[in-house]
Design a protein around this nucleic acid. Structure first.
Lengths: 186, 186
DNA sequence: GTTCCCATGTAACCCGTTACATGATTTT
DNA sequence: AAAATCATGTAACGGGTTACATGGGAAC
């Protein structure tokens, strides 16, 4: 049983939702550390229903396509509980194409590398804006404590990478001092 | 063309290698931010050869299975260069099952949660040991500067997560002060 | 009044993972 | 002498991504 499926059980333990709602909800909560495409959500829901971990009910809607709303079954709740209390966890999966390019940076000109670093920093700063907004929105809600702390995880790591960028730029400066161009002096 | 394939071109720009060697080399270099299973390496090498980006030569060996050693072709070197100089990069993919469980921690007892945090910390500390060893081994080698800095990326993020754990434990202490048990007082 | 966005989903592809194979060498 | 490790790979499965479909409402 995949982590994505178990994550869906977790979300359904909060409230009943349709696939679309689950996907949207996941985007704004688990999205930073467990992204799930809508397609995956739908497929896993089908499987979870086949396995009896969730029960779906078709709900007709006016002006909107009919939807299928899912709720946890007792079996599903039990399975969720098993997973959460079982010790251990898979080691984090991390893939960073930026770092792969960076690793081979001797094939890149220094100025291009600095642009890469700037782009990377910009992406991180955007992440931080989003994460801070998430944290702020649930500040003070005691029910959301773990969600807020999970977002704080993202904040910590992004800030660490910003510090890393500074370290890299320092190393580059030491190696290849920036010579002022005519434009810079103007 | 997948990032893994391009990463292999990058590794082959260092020196000619067989699939097995590439896999071992990748494990100790790109492994922290772009893991590649051996199987994947072999399949991508086949494709790269079909596409003319690498050329393979069978090398018979005594007491060891024959191997196929690959070298970059001109086309491959060009493709690598294109990739490295093209602006932009895919956004980092991050999946952390620990955080998913943590997100649903209201279903876990506080003591179990503390065990989870301890396990997470232990894994991070092991990462740091490995990363520090990597950094130390190539310290001072100017050719390995980017590799060293990439490893430093890992160091920064792991340390940030350790700081996060401390923040979480503080939050838990504030919420549910640990009551000393008979054993603790003994 | 086109064009974009919302709300709902299905289908196909492919990268990444896990399992399988094999014979020599080293370790217990 | 059995078991683990090394050095080389192939094959199959499945989770995750991308592409496709649809019809109403909102925006420009």
């Amino acid at each position: 049983m995949s982590t994505s499926a178990l994550a869906l059980l977790g979300l359904l333990s909060i409230r009943d939702m349709s696939g679309y709602e689950l996907s949207a909800f996941a985007d704004k909560s688990l999205g930073y550390f467990w992204p799930m495409h809508r397609s995956l959500v739908y497929r896993e829901l089908r499987r979870l229903e086949d396995a009896g971990h969730v029960a779906g009910t078709d709900v007709p809607q006016e002006r909107l396509p009919d939807k299928r709303v899912y709720q946890l079954t007792d079996a599903g709740r039990t399975r969720l509980q098993e997973w959460l209390t079982a010790p251990g966890f898979e080691s984090p999966r991390y893939r960073n194409e930026f770092l792969v390019k960076f690793f081979f940076a001797r094939h890149i000109t220094p100025d291009r590398l600095r642009v890469f670093l700037d782009d990377y920093r910009a992406a991180l700063e955007q992440d931080l804006v989003d994460l801070d907004a998430t944290v702020a929105k649930i500040e003070g809600d005691p029910d959301a404590m773990f969600g807020r702390l999970a977002a704080r995880h993202g904040v910590h790591t992004r800030q660490a990478v910003l510090a890393w960028i500074a370290e890299v730029e320092q190393a580059l400066d030491d190696l290849l001092p920036v010579v002022p161009t005519r434009d810079d002096r103007r």
